[in-house]
Design a protein around this nucleic acid. Structure first.
Length: 521
DNA sequence: AGTGCAGTTGACTTT
DNA sequence: TAAAGTCAACTGCAC
């Protein structure tokens, strides 16, 4: 390895923070010297089982805009396609790196391993690597006490101004932005996908808070209304085209504006903005879990659930392509395939159906599901996979009935008919259970499969198995430990203490307050 | 107008 | 972020 002659450049390594506004590492690096703004396309990362072409497309659109924004401040984005260490090493040997700057990343095992290797390389080369938090996630967290307050302070802190001007680096080629196929990424485009790039994110934020968001609380539950009634910011937050802080502050400003309005003119807005803010909070709450315990990407929170479920390739194939024969499940899955996004409740139902009715291990369904999400965020995804599969030990099993969900959230079957044209002839009364329609076979035999399982029977079998595990000796003690470590503060006491407290409340004839589990709706 | 009854609604518990 | 079951209160209606 050649020893560089000068150590003069500040490398800002963009990862999932594709913006120049509210970018702490960029601002600090710019204060210290000439900046190489770098994005590394790492082909090996894109071969991981949770990564996909549709995510790469969103990334590409975001990188194009980032390159423009950086050009505006003086130096376009430098893009290199290779593994991180060779890339950094090349830059160091050719130009000399003084320090490396990036946001902290709470990613999957692959990025964690890569970051440890980069840290080791930096140490060998005597290059400082400054990693700065961008969410309310705290590295090496000792105690959860005060976490929420710290989050509020971080999010309320002033936005970081974009650097006044970056020194143009005529000697460094910006480099091409490769196409997915150049990097060996399989084509997996979602035809109706939300687009990447900061400008889209900012306009979604604006239109949500000023215009679309009023029915949020109700609209988020149904796939008929959620595409318009939700913020559509999840992928932007995942890729950092819009920062959590600016999103939080925009919502707070909206809240202040509403308070200035007379009650009669506020409509449903106050509740909508409050729920939205709560979700921003949960975003970090879940990522914190993966930060604290990276193993949850692979292992059940509670070991008693390890190896309980059974792999079944054919069932996964039918589930992930929308061919289970349960109309609402299939409609939601097909919508997700086409959009790369679906609302939270439907995600929960899809996972519940896979984990209970189909009895599939959450790891084997979590991978194809991660690939379908353009907003895949490892900390949220794997926490949710486990919660919806009841492997946490903290949460009670919640088994969704896809027929009931369909009746509740798609009462006249229009969502089903839109995504499953095979069922267009089925009358309303049978649309959620077409196998009961007497003319079913004659009309659509061969076009739409019979149900993969008997919903009622499969649910009962799954429920009994889960409750049998919960009754095993020793289960409770481990669950209580997990509760202490990972439960939210509001529900942060072991289960048996809760029961005692509830019993006491009843004795005093006070109304029992709702236990606050980790909820998202 | 009062009574009985089937069906509905809501609060709460259990799994 | 659930669903099903229980129970009591309530409602509409026939008589």
């Amino acid at each position: 390895m050649t020893v560089p002659t000068a150590h003069r450049y500040q490398v800002v390594w963009f990862k999932r923070d594709l913006r120049v506004d509210d970018h702490d590492p960029l601002m600090r690096a710019a204060e210290r010297g000439p900046v190489i703004p770098l994005f590394i396309i790492e082909p090996d990362l894109w071969q991981q089982p949770d990564m996909s072409g549709r995510q790469f497309s969103f990334l590409s659109e975001s990188l194009l805009e980032l390159r423009e924004q950086l050009s505006d401040v003086g130096q376009p984005l430098i893009v290199r396609t290779s593994d991180a260490i060779s890339c950094l090493n090349d830059l160091h040997c050719t130009y000399g790196i003084d320090a490396l700057w990036s946001h902290e990343e709470t990613g999957n095992d692959w990025t964690f391993t890569r970051d440890r290797a980069v840290a080791a390389w930096c140490q060998e080369q005597r290059i400082e690597w400054h990693q700065i938090p961008q969410f309310g996630v705290i590295r090496r967290l000792k105690s959860r006490r005060g976490w929420a307050g710290r989050w509020d302070r971080l999010m309320s802190a002033p936005m970081i101004q974009r650097p006044k001007g970056l020194m143009p680096l005529s000697e460094i080629e910006p480099g091409p932005l490769p196409q997915a196929q150049d990097v060996g990424i399989a084509n997996d485009e979602a035809p109706k996908r939300f687009r990447g790039g900061r400008s889209v994110g900012l306009s979604d934020l604006e239109s949500f808070l000023q215009d679309r968001g009023e029915p949020y609380q109700k609209a988020m539950s149904s796939p008929l209304t959620a595409f318009d009634g939700c913020s559509r910011l999840s992928a932007h937050l995942a890729f950092g085209t819009v920062s959590m802080r600016e999103t939080y502050q925009a919502a707070c400003r909206r809240q202040d504006d509403l308070r200035a309005l007379h009650m009669d003119h506020r409509g449903r807005w106050p509740g909508a903005v409050r729920s939205f803010l709560a979700r921003l909070h949960w975003h970090c709450h879940f990522i914190q879990k993966l930060e604290d315990e990276p193993a949850i990407e692979f292992r059940c929170f509670h070991p008693a659930y390890e190896g309980l479920r059974e792999h079944n390739a054919e069932a996964i194939e039918r589930w992930s392509t929308g061919q289970t024969g349960l109309p609402f499940v299939d409609a939601c899955m097909r919508a997700l395939n086409a959009h790369g996004w679906i609302n939270f409740r439907m995600r929960a139902m899809l996972v519940s159906f896979a984990s209970y009715h189909l009895w599939l291990p959450w790891r084997s369904t979590g991978e194809p599901l991660a690939r379908l999400f353009i907003d895949y965020e490892p900390g949220i995804h794997w926490s949710q996979m486990q919660m919806q599969s009841s492997t946490t030990g903290i949460n009670l099993p919640r088994i969704y009935n896809p027929i009931k969900q369909g009746r509740d959230f798609d009462p006249n079957g229009s969502f089903i008919r839109h995504w499953i044209p095979e069922l267009s002839e089925v009358p309303n009364v049978y649309i959620h259970e077409p196998w009961l329609w007497p003319e079913m076979r004659a009309t659509i035999d061969g076009h739409y499969p019979p149900p993969i399982v008997d919903e009622r029977a499969a649910r009962k079998v799954a429920r009994d198995k889960i409750w049998a595990v919960r009754r095993e000796p020793g289960y409770r003690a481990i669950a209580d430990q997990i509760q202490v470590r990972h439960g939210s503060r509001k529900s942060g006491m072991p289960q048996h203490d809760k029961r005692i407290k509830i019993a006491r409340r009843k004795q005093k004839a006070e109304p029992a307050t709702q236990l606050s589990f980790l909820t998202s709706e």
